[in-house]
Amino acid sequence: MDFPKDLKYTKEHEWIKVEGNTATIGITDYAQDSLGDVVYVELPQEGQAVTKHEAFGVVESVKAVSDLYSPVSGSVSEVNDAIIDSPEAINEDPYGDAWMIKVDVSNKAELSDLLSAEDYQKFIEEEK
């Protein structure tokens, strides 16, 4: 299982990459693997506000549903519409093609409690 070092992670299994004021958000390799084949994803509209720890969308496999929790607060600047039509990308390339939303971060201080790749890996080992 893959956990790129340049990303930050949450205990709800999202990854986040911050460049300047923009954060790109998706779900981790571990999350897609636990869900199984993803068949549906529901994402917010551009311009919609998201709040740290609150749900911004839903991802579904055949027999499971999972909320997507935002690792950071802000407003949605871009939505990856491509994965709505081909949700299988979430299984195939969770850190690349299957990014979900980009957010204009409103409070950078919120980034301080995110997990490093190492910490996240440790966390899921314990969760198993």
Partner: peptide
């Protein structure tokens, strides 16, 4: 579309 249903989504 079973994820709509009670055995998966429960109270939602």
């Amino acid at each position: 579309f079973s994820t709509r249903e009670q055995h998966i989504r429960r109270e939602r």
